[in-house]
């Protein structure tokens, strides 16, 4: 068995997505009043278009990956947590945590934590600068949105 190339892998994944999409498109309810084109036509066309395109992709010879050459091959090997992929994953987790904690913690606290935490994690060591800049930006934005523009932001545990 020959190994599949990148495009072929992608094509298979996309074909699966397309199949699932088509299956869902068939479950869209029909509108009780007669319509020349009902809600389901467009999704069905899109699903099949994606299916056909993934077939084309399967047979397209892969170009060198756009990102591959620029990902630094000798990025810090050191501790596992500071490898490039670990950084991305930690950031994704941190942002998700921010989203979930925004309301209970309040806007100012959650934003400060995320911003300072990530900056330190990315390896910037002048903590006073980090703190000052973050505080300035977060408070400035908060005051502008809540006081000037009258947008309600969650206050959380802080008194404002």
């Amino acid at each position: 068995m020959t190994r599949l190339n990148t495009n072929q892998w992608l094509a298979l994944v996309l074909a699966l997505v397309a199949a699932a999409y088509i299956a869902m498109a068939w479950q869209i309810a029909t509108f009780p009043l007669p319509r020349p084109v009902d809600s389901d036509l467009f999704p069905k066309v899109l699903g099949f278009a994606l299916l056909i395109l993934s077939a084309f992709l399967f047979f397209e010879p892969p170009a060198p990956l756009a990102g591959a050459d620029t990902i630094d091959p000798d990025a810090p090997r050191g501790p596992l947590l500071s490898t490039p992929w670990a950084r991305v994953i930690v950031t994704v987790v941190a942002v998700a945590a921010y989203a979930l904690l925004l309301v209970p913690l309040g806007f100012v606290l959650a934003s400060m934590l995320l911003c300072v935490g990530l900056t330190v994690y990315y390896g910037y060591r002048r903590h006073s600068v980090t703190l000052a800049v973050t505080l300035g930006v977060v408070l400035g934005l908060y005051l502008m949105m809540t006081r000037v523009m009258d947008v309600y932001l969650p206050t959380g545990v802080l008194p404002f």
Binding site: T91, V95, S111, L114, C115, V116, L118, T119, Y122, G123, Y124, R126, V129, T130, V133, T134, V137, V138
Partner: peptide, 12 residues
């Protein structure tokens, strides 16, 4: 700006 700080600020 130091990149570490800039990236966090863009996220925020």
């Amino acid at each position: 700006m130091p990149k570490a700080l800039l990236l966090s600020l863009i996220l925020i």
